Structure formats: structure tokens, C-alpha cells
Amino acid sequence: MNFKEKTIVSGSLNRIRRSPRKMRLVVDIIRNKEIKNALNILKYSKKHNISISLRKLLLSLLSNCKKKYIEDDFDQKLFYIKEIRVNQGRTLKRLRPVPQGRGHRIRKRSSNVLITLVERKYM
């Protein structure tokens, strides 16, 4: 089946207080999926805190797409996630006191997510 791809919307979410390594576990599951399937996967994911952030971002992208391209034939089923990347964001450095007057460094990592949605048009 031949189809033509047209990049529609891309969006990002920065400084999510989750480590990139944990975010990538969820992101790898929804990569190259249709929007409807991805939203269902995120809804029932066991990584609840991470999936909430990604689900909000996907719903926001769909809403922006509807506003940007006001069309009567807008169909959510034609959209799929072409690209989704998780990069490391800012790291907060904290100290935890340990015996004998020392301190161990605690790194609180954050991540940045970039999503590109594509509309698939069948010919």
C-alpha cells in the first residue's frame, strides 16, 4: 500500500523531573505507533508518573493540530508518532550527609522529550 507522509506537528516538553533512562523505557514502547494505540498504551502503563506526562503532551499536540489545520475531515486515526526522542535535561546536584562529616552527591536528573506527529495519507 502506497502512502504519503506529511509532517504536521512537533512539540516538546522540557525539564520533566524523571530520569531519561526511565523515560526511554516507556517511549520505546510507543514509538512508531498510531496515536490512538499510543494513548491506550500510556493509559494502562505501569510507569504511571511518566505515562501521565507523555499522554498530556500527545493530547496537547492533537489539540494544536486541530487548531492549526481546521479541516472537516480531521481523523485522529491517520496520525502516528514518527519521531520521539528523550534527551537529558538539567541535573540538580544535592548533598546527602553521611558519617564522619562527609557528604555524598545526589544527582536528580530531568529529561526533555521531543515528539513529531505525521499524517499518513493513503493513495
Results as ranks from 00 to 15, higher is better:
residue 1 M to V: 15
residue 1 M to A: 13
residue 3 F to Q: 12
residue 3 F to V: 15
residue 3 F to S: 12
residue 4 K to M: 11
residue 5 E to N: 11
residue 6 K to R: 09
residue 6 K to N: 11
residue 7 T to W: 07
residue 8 I to E: 01
residue 9 V to K: 04
residue 12 S to M: 12
residue 13 L to N: 02
residue 16 I to L: 06
residue 18 R to W: 04
residue 20 P to F: 07
residue 21 R to W: 01
residue 21 R to L: 06
residue 21 R to V: 08
residue 24 R to D: 13
residue 24 R to E: 11
residue 25 L to I: 15
residue 25 L to Q: 01
residue 26 V to Q: 03
residue 29 I to N: 06
residue 31 R to T: 07
residue 31 R to E: 06
residue 31 R to Q: 06
residue 34 E to K: 09
residue 35 I to H: 01
residue 35 I to D: 00
residue 35 I to F: 05
residue 36 K to G: 10
residue 37 N to P: 01
residue 37 N to L: 08
residue 37 N to E: 13
residue 37 N to I: 14
residue 39 L to T: 14
residue 40 N to K: 09
residue 42 L to E: 02
residue 44 Y to T: 15
residue 45 S to P: 00
residue 49 N to G: 14
residue 50 I to F: 02
residue 51 S to Q: 06
residue 51 S to Y: 07
residue 51 S to V: 10
residue 52 I to H: 07
residue 54 L to T: 08
residue 55 R to F: 04
residue 55 R to G: 05
residue 56 K to M: 07
residue 56 K to N: 13
residue 57 L to P: 09
residue 59 L to M: 15
residue 60 S to Q: 09
residue 61 L to V: 10
residue 62 L to K: 13
residue 62 L to T: 12
residue 62 L to C: 04
residue 64 N to H: 08
residue 64 N to A: 15
residue 67 K to S: 11
residue 67 K to D: 05
residue 67 K to L: 10
residue 68 K to R: 12
residue 70 I to W: 00
residue 73 D to T: 14
residue 74 F to G: 05
residue 74 F to Y: 14
residue 75 D to G: 06
residue 75 D to F: 10
residue 77 K to W: 05
residue 78 L to E: 07
residue 78 L to D: 11
residue 80 Y to Q: 08
residue 80 Y to M: 10
residue 80 Y to W: 12
residue 81 I to L: 04
residue 82 K to M: 04
residue 83 E to D: 12
residue 84 I to G: 03
residue 84 I to Q: 05
residue 86 V to A: 06
residue 86 V to Y: 01
residue 86 V to H: 02
residue 87 N to P: 01
residue 87 N to D: 15
residue 87 N to G: 12
residue 88 Q to W: 04
residue 89 G to Y: 03
residue 89 G to S: 04
residue 90 R to K: 13
residue 91 T to V: 13
residue 92 L to Q: 08
residue 92 L to I: 13
residue 94 R to H: 05
residue 95 L to P: 00
residue 95 L to D: 05
residue 96 R to F: 06
residue 97 P to L: 11
residue 97 P to R: 15
residue 99 P to A: 15
residue 99 P to T: 10
residue 99 P to M: 14
residue 102 R to S: 11
residue 102 R to P: 00
residue 104 H to K: 14
residue 106 I to C: 02
residue 106 I to N: 06
residue 107 R to S: 01
residue 111 S to Q: 03
residue 113 V to R: 06
residue 114 L to H: 05
residue 114 L to D: 03
residue 116 T to K: 08
residue 116 T to G: 01
residue 117 L to T: 08
residue 118 V to F: 00
residue 118 V to I: 09
residue 120 R to A: 14
residue 120 R to I: 09
